[in-house]
Simulated assay, not measured.
Amino acid sequence: MDVLAILNLGEIAQYFSKMAMFPVFDLAYYIVSILYLKYEPGSVEVSRRSPVASWLCAMLYCFGSYILADIMLGDSPIDYFHNNSHILLATAVWYLIFFCPLNLFYKCVTFLPIKLVLVAMKEVVRTRKIAAGVHHAHHAYHHGWFIMVITGYVKGAGVALMSNFEQLLRGVWRPETNEILNMSFPTKASLYGAILFTLQESHWLPASKSTLICLFTLFMATSKVIMTARHSHGSPFALIESWVCHLLFGSPLGSSEDSHDHHHPAPVAAAPASPTKTKEELNEGTRKRKSKKAE
């Protein structure tokens, strides 16, 4: 207790939960989000052929969670676009990543030490968005626990949930990549986080919101940094999910993670495909090979 009192962990958590996200953390969120867009096959070609379509896709990657949550809660889907500073900042990031001379900005932000910092900062924003979504739904539907969970889930993973619509803007249709069918780690974590924040908002969880925000952010940032550094597609939830699915639904042990992998066969010499690795390595390698052929 004396150690905790000296460290003032409660005050640290309180300060952290009230720390402003704009512009530093939001900038990191936009950079990582638009990097994922550039890793998608054909995204660079679309940016050259139709910059407007590419910009719209980038805005969906940055603000898709807000748009989807507003639609669910009966607000205008373009309501968030009145934040001119956020739109301009995201637009500047989109332009630098796709059109910076010699790809200098892209090379800087994909340098692994810098990228790990940006990934961690993005998870800070994600956690804050989940908590804000649950809090917003709590005010609109005071006893609607499921609505709170769904809203927090959408705020944390709305970009992934809208991926098929974003693909249509790029002229691509890949229904097998539906995020509900193939949930990635951030999507699962957003759902579990929304449940935790709903329990806290309903006073079923004996913890303050600031403490929960601090702990969940630490878990998310640590997990994503390790996964990015190791180029891993594993999930901290894999073992627990395997046992729970086997107990409740009769699924074979160890098959839950396999079912979330891509359904199309991977090359024999390649590592198992995954949402993280596919976006950050396989698609980027494909794009580089195409650009070399074009040259």
Rank of each mutant, 00 (worst) to 15 (best):
1 M>W: 08
2 D>G: 06
4 L>K: 08
4 L>G: 05
4 L>T: 09
8 N>S: 11
10 G>V: 04
12 I>V: 15
17 S>E: 09
20 A>N: 07
23 P>K: 04
25 F>I: 07
32 V>T: 11
36 Y>N: 10
36 Y>F: 11
40 E>H: 10
44 V>L: 07
51 P>V: 07
52 V>T: 06
52 V>W: 11
54 S>F: 02
56 L>H: 06
59 M>V: 06
59 M>N: 08
65 S>T: 02
68 L>Q: 05
71 I>F: 05
73 L>R: 13
82 H>F: 09
83 N>W: 08
83 N>D: 08
88 L>Q: 05
89 L>K: 08
93 V>F: 03
97 I>K: 01
98 F>A: 01
98 F>N: 06
99 F>Y: 14
103 N>I: 06
106 Y>C: 02
108 C>G: 04
111 F>Q: 02
116 L>D: 02
121 M>D: 12
130 I>S: 01
137 A>R: 11
137 A>G: 06
137 A>S: 10
147 I>R: 14
155 K>A: 07
159 V>Q: 09
162 M>R: 04
171 G>R: 00
172 V>T: 09
178 N>Y: 04
179 E>F: 06
181 L>V: 06
181 L>Q: 11
182 N>K: 12
182 N>F: 12
183 M>S: 14
184 S>Y: 11
186 P>H: 05
191 L>S: 05
191 L>I: 11
196 L>M: 03
196 L>T: 01
198 T>L: 01
199 L>D: 03
199 L>F: 04
200 Q>S: 10
204 W>Q: 06
205 L>Q: 01
215 L>A: 14
217 T>P: 11
219 F>C: 05
221 A>M: 02
222 T>V: 11
226 I>M: 14
226 I>L: 15
229 A>C: 12
229 A>D: 11
231 H>P: 02
232 S>K: 10
234 G>P: 01
238 A>H: 14
240 I>H: 09
245 C>I: 02
248 L>I: 03
248 L>C: 07
254 G>L: 08
260 H>C: 07
261 D>P: 00
265 P>M: 01
267 P>R: 00
268 V>A: 09
282 L>E: 15
284 E>A: 13
287 R>P: 08
288 K>I: 13
290 K>N: 15
